[in-house]
């Protein structure tokens, strides 16, 4: 690990506008510092500035940026009104990591692309302009949506995928004041500058995540991974589906493990709304979703996997059919 100086903020004002790298749970940052992928010259410990409560906000909830993932998933209001969020958090990492990882830090976690994490390989995210060894390399874990010739990495988290389906927003504080960004616009596609994971600029800090009023419905987070626990998603589906008089009235969907950001395609939800649930409808919606998908070779399997996962989730959400979607 490269040498750095350490500072400990005791209030938010000390932490914003700083060139220092904020550290909260540190579960991703310290890992990357050990690998010397991250080499900050100064760390700003923000664990003592508050922002660690979940409180009502209008008809919704405000989750402080320093609320630990474990506490968020265990919160009775989250469990009752936003089960999708609790499910997504519980599908990620290990209990030890969830006890440290925070709401804001989780949003800022970096890709687990093996090339990004290994010095000595070319990676435009780690070293802008150097190239991308994942393209044409071992790319089983990589993106099928929104990738560019500069970067095919994925955003690895689960929590943010649920937050995208829930249409949450991110509250950000900087020296010029505060701003609010939709979670769906918080993370970026790689475009030509994949070293930028999200829209935060230097010196800005996430202060909270706001959840809109609860919408009820059937809420499902399905994560497909190489082992049953403690692994990143190959693909994941976050879904909120409501039915009224036999027709779908709400279909808020987001997908993980498939892009540089939680993937949200409003056309897929629109294709479902107003219709009676059926395998044909679900197949058409899933086709619409994967229509623009592009594999890199090693990850081609993600396209049919995502398609079938969406169909299976829609079946479960609407109570039709079983779990066997091989023929759809």
């Amino acid at each position: 690990m490269k040498f750095f100086d350490y500072a400990r903020a005791t209030e938010l004002s000390e932490a914003i506008g700083e060139f220092a790298k904020p550290i909260a749970g540190g579960t991703n940052l310290l890992d990357l510092m050990k690998l010397e992928v991250e080499t900050p010259s100064r760390l700003m410990d923000i664990n003592h500035i508050g922002l660690n409560e979940i409180s009502p906000h209008g008809d919704g909830l405000r989750i402080g940026a320093l609320v630990r993932n474990a506490d968020c998933a265990a919160d009775l209001r989250v469990r009752r009104d936003y089960p999708l969020l609790a499910r997504a958090i519980l599908a990620g990492a290990s209990p030890q990591l969830r006890n440290r990882a925070t709401t804001g830090g989780n949003l800022c976690q970096r890709t687990r692309c093996t090339y990004f994490m290994r010095l000595g390989t070319r990676c435009n995210k780690r070293e802008p302009g150097s190239g991308c060894d994942a393209i044409g390399g071992v790319n089983r874990d990589h993106a099928i949506f929104g990738a560019t010739e500069h970067c095919i990495a994925t955003y690895p988290g689960d929590m943010a995928v649920a937050l995208a389906a829930l249409d949450a927003s991110v509250q950000i504080e900087g020296i010029d004041g505060s701003r609010q960004v939709s979670l769906r616009d918080f993370h970026r596609l790689p475009d030509g500058d994949p070293h930028l994971d999200n829209v935060l600029t230097g010196g800005e800090i996430i202060t909270s995540v706001k959840l809109p009023a609860p919408v009820g419905g059937k809420q499902i987070y399905r994560k497909i991974r190489d082992r049953a626990s403690y692994a990143f998603a190959l693909v994941s589906v976050a879904a909120i589906v409501t039915l009224d008089q036999g027709r779908i009235t709400r279909a808020d969907l987001a997908f993980g493990g498939v892009a540089h950001k939680p993937w949200h395609d409003p056309a897929v939800g629109r294709a479902l709304i107003g219709n009676e649930p059926s395998d044909q409808l679900f197949s058409e919606a899933a086709d619409l979703l994967v229509n623009q998908a592009k594999g890199q070779g090693g990850n081609d399997f993600k396209i049919p996997l995502l398609r079938r996962s969406l169909i299976a989730v829609l079946r479960e959400a609407t109570g039709i059919g079983g779990n066997d979607v091989r023929n759809l």
Binding site: D31, Q96, L97, R100
Partner: peptide
């Protein structure tokens, strides 16, 4: 932070002691 061999309890919570700093 992958194996859990370093797990200790901090303020009642189990954590990976390899992924937090002494100064924190």
């Amino acid at each position: 932070g992958q194996c859990g061999a370093c797990t200790v309890i901090v303020d009642g919570s189990r954590v990976n002691s390899c992924l937090t700093l002494a100064v924190m």
